[in-house]
Amino acid sequence: MDEPALIDSSSTAAPTTQTAASSADTSPEGDTITDWFGDPQLQSLDPRFVMTERVAGWIFVAVVGAVAFLVLLGWILANWPPGWGMGLVILLLVALLAGFGWYVHAWPPIAYRWCRYRASEEGLEIYRGVFWRSVVNVPRFRIQHTDVRQGPLQRRYGLSKLVVHTAGTEHAMIELDGLCREEALALRDLLRAQEEEDGII
């Protein structure tokens, strides 16, 4: 419940800032794991995911921009009259913010294209990653419990995040963000059918 989409998008934004620019190419290359993503049986996330992520990103950029603006204003007023160096710093900050704004706009559709999943009686498979591509398989009878979470923005767009908990150590928690609410609930019901059995023996 305490998952504001705002913070979520900022954390994905941090590690890959400018590099995102070059990766508009989403056509499957010749290698094997990438080919899996083209499997027609796989399901995509809800298309509204793109909009939600963008809005979250914009809000984040706006907040950061506002704070930066206030700090700058204070700085300029304290050192009146402004010099050339100051102008350069301001220009740099504006450029940075613009780049960041462009990134939060451009990244969500790419992330959306590179996220697929398949759920069945057997379990959940998640295909994900623009650069670091991974396929995760969680057998259904290994699932300890599942959460369906919703932040304020997601509530507005009718989206949810499915969180699957296992007894594993590295994959103790597997998240699938950007499902429509009904789909997330249906997945939860599908995956929990066997809950009385023990996950760890």
């Binding site: 290698d31 396929v135 995760v136 296992t166 150590t169 996950g199």
Partner: peptide, 27 residues
């Protein structure tokens, strides 16, 4: 518990991949 296969950009260049097996083992 969970099995996954991971390919980093470098892996992709070399046509390699990483296979990871997760158990409940505590460490």
């Amino acid at each position: 518990q969970v099995v996954d296969v991971l390919q980093t950009p470098f892996d992709r260049r070399w046509n390699m991949a990483q296979l990871r097996i997760d158990t409940a083992a505590a460490g």
